[in-house]
Design a binder for these strands. Structure first.
Lengths: 353, 353
DNA sequence: CTGAAAGCGCTTACAG
DNA sequence: CTGAAAGCGCTTACAG
């Protein structure tokens, strides 16, 4: 039978209240008394029942998530996961409020952060726009004792308690490492030289280089491309603002210019536009393509061979990790970093979940 | 304020006991009474506090894991994860016993299953050896009302409640899909023909084709190789018994025969031997290599370029999934299949966690 | 068929 | 500095 507070109280010859004081490291217990209790805990191998403790405490947590109103599948998924988590955690006395703000809008984000702070929640999570104003607003929350976690995209100055997202530089490197090898004999755009394809041309489409995650992916990608695949030519980066229509236009322009791509890395969102354009040119040999985030669009494109690989961050994992970290911070408990590391998933058509 | 059983009792004008009966679908409540309670539940938006319920019930779960004594990193990791989970779940009133059996030994596994059954636990998890005797022993447990989950390797006849592991056929397909594209201009073993490498030779090393997971990986691999890369030649499959020394010998023999491989797929364990052999031949151009399971050995080999990609199943996820499923079965609660799907991770040197 | 009371393992005022 | 008692939200004999 697992020992309870009653057992250790009896063993130490004290009351439940005293056991509780020792267990929770509260003041007001004489040295010798404390020692007797500690001895009993050790002797009986006591381990506290956390859910009973929580029940008794009636502890409630309130968190606020500030999410961009971006109309792409990933952000929709992210908002959905927050709602799911909210529903799921209600019985565990965790309340999650959501504030939606226009995407890429520093001023709106600052206003939302201040509004969140006014409700004095235990913690706030945000998809950061990396400006000094946002960093300052985050600082104000933390001065109020509110824990702050960045989600998906970080602040470059790291003015927060934790970042719940992938290593975007590593993601960019991974994309280059795969794309460089996929650009083989099956793809066009290079000239034959001593039996090797050289000078194949590679396009990169970002959402916006004003966002830290896109910056980092781009940096990682160029790093590995230059180092491991110097025979490939990187075209100047294009920006599609994570918007399907913009992305489509930008890629269509490339084709209109007669560009024959060997490879294409779409490091942001808006892949609906990319895929539409690729399909239109399906009769030509298409470039090797790597994109981000497993959505309905990218899944279908993987399945019918329009996209070769998709790098993915699991929105559900990120949201749940952010909540665990916020809760730990609220409890002043330690965060196990290794457990909160968000993986970069690689999907081919063959390992789709 | 979240409503409790007290609130709904008051609202319906009944006692707590009656509320409880309705909540848990127990018999012995008159129709009209039940309806009043259900109306109150709906009206107040009641949702039960599961941990309080568990506390009151004092429900305890006992599970037995039967694990092979195999001396490779993956099985060691699996045993470690079971111990971790056991420690972690003790406070939640879940007890996990472990029985270790010799690997690939049907008779020993049958004995262990019967021994486990004698303790009448709530559930049993096993790494299956696929024989009729094992299937029969599993049947005996289930006849006793004990839930059974296979872990990592399944029974081909599916005589169990659930399989906690990856889709091994998809894993084999994924390996082929990557390997076929990696075998490019950087690798030897083919002859040039109209500027294309043709006839590159591919070796496959399994542990044993008597185990379902290895069978399935092999089947998936050959399927995609034949379909998508018909210009590559598959050598007859080699068996290394998941043993580093055996694997090393088998690969060394290939080199001794003067075989020049374009690619190599190691679909079982014992990669320590493979990597030793590859390193010895490091000055030659080495084949593109894909292996399974991220271990110290394969991680190091990824990092210094001896292995190109590692397919991985997360032992921790598998163990925790198995436990969740066993608990759900014990509670006669439904299992959310999508949530229990184990992913096939792909690791390159660039996305190592 | 229904209810009053005790209890699961912990915590929290309150009193001394 | 220490303890007796009530309570967190549920469940379970037991009695009627």
């Amino acid at each position: 039978m697992k020992p309870t507070v009653h057992d250790i109280a009896a063993h130490a010859g004290v009351s439940l209240a005293t056991v509780d004081r020792v267990l929770n490291g509260r003041a007001g217990v004489r040295g010798p008394t404390r020692e007797r209790v500690e001895a009993a805990i050790a002797a009986l191998g006591y381990v506290r029942d956390v859910s009973a403790a929580n029940l008794a405490k009636g502890r409630r947590y309130s968190f606020v998530f500030i999410l961009p109103a971006n109309d792409n599948s990933f952000m929709r998924a992210l908002r959905h996961e927050v709602e799911e988590a909210s529903r799921h955690l209600k019985p565990e006395r965790i309340t999650i409020g959501v504030i939606t703000v226009p995407a890429f809008d520093s001023a709106a984000l600052v206003a939302a952060l201040d509004q969140a702070g006014a409700e004095t929640p235990d913690g706030v999570a945000l998809v950061a726009v990396d400006t000094p104003e946002v960093a300052a607003a985050v600082g104000r929350l933390r001065d109020q004792g509110i824990a702050v976690v960045t989600l998906v995209s970080d602040l470059s100055g790291h003015q927060r308690d934790h970042f719940a997202g992938i290593d975007n530089r590593a993601a960019g490197r991974t994309a280059a490492s795969l794309l460089g090898r996929f650009v083989g004999k099956d793809h066009v755009g290079g000239k034959e030289q001593a039996g090797e394809t050289v000078g194949g041309r590679i396009a990169v489409i970002a959402g916006s280089l004003q966002v830290v995650d896109h910056q980092e992916r781009y940096a990682g990608f160029t790093e590995v491309m230059r180092r491991d695949f110097p025979h490939l030519t990187l075209l100047p980066v294009l920006q599609g603002r994570d918007d399907p229509a913009e992305v489509e236009k930008v890629v269509a322009d490339l084709y209109a210019q007669g560009e024959e791509l060997a490879g294409l890395y779409s490091l942001g969102a808006g892949n609906r536009g990319l895929v539409r354009c690729l399909r239109r040119h399906a009769r030509q040999r298409r470039p090797a393509v790597i994109a981000h985030e497993l959505t309905e669009t990218t899944r279908a494109a993987l399945e019918d061979g329009m996209i070769d690989a998709v790098l993915n961050q699991d929105a559900g994992h990120e949201v749940r990790s952010a909540i665990r970290v916020l809760k730990a911070k609220a409890d002043k408990a330690p965060v196990i970093a290794a457990q909160e590391r968000i993986r970069i998933d690689i999907f081919l058509k063959d390992n789709l979940p």
